[in-house]
Amino acid sequence: MMTESHHVSSRFDEDLARLRTQVLQMGGLVETQVAAAIDAYSSGEVGSVKAIVDGDRRVNELEKAIDDDCAHIIAKRQPTASDLRLVLGVSKIVTDLERAGDETKKIAKGVRRIYENGHLPGQFGPGVQHLAEAALNLVRQALDSFARLDTGQATQVIRLDDDVDVEFKSIIRQLITHMMEDPRTITTSIDIITIARAIERIGDHAKNISEQVIYIVEGRDIRHIKEAAK
């Protein structure tokens, strides 16, 4: 329900527009990072790990820059109602984006360890691959829902995250079976668990972003509420 009407102060409009653009820019970067990490996992292109680690620095810088802008908008404009919710929501969204960036780095480093130890994650490939694509899809949809302030899509992301959680648990069960059957797979399995856990967390961050979109648009705080109540 963001109003289309303009602020009397056009610079306030510009400030808020820039804030949203920056979040989308940061989100786009995180999305690219996640995609690159998944790619490294399936292709074994360990060379891209360094680029992912470097890219995360840029994500961190954007988080600080956007938070700084939020502080300046609050100090200068004293935003209220939907403007206030946007600024507060953005400040939380960038925290989740930054953390999703950290998880991506964990995936990349895990991939490098597996390949450097001369192993191939291939035997677990499809499961983790599928999980990763589902999480990436959640990040995309969460950012889309923010760009369009679309609560329907945001709600969809929150629902879909449950599927990611279920899939993650199933992968863990598979890995435990593998480790029991053949203890030589333990080292690789632990790395893959780390990776799967990171992917599952990325899904959670996408869900958190969607919850903020609902707060920004409707003023409802649906965090920590059981699914049925949402």
């Binding site: 109003t3 009397v8 102060s9 109602a81 939907s82 403007d83």
Partner: peptide
């Protein structure tokens, strides 16, 4: 934080 009427919203957000 969450006015119900759009006219209120427009006014308080400037």
């Amino acid at each position: 934080l969450k006015p119900n009427d759009k006219r209120t919203e427009d006014y308080i957000t400037g």
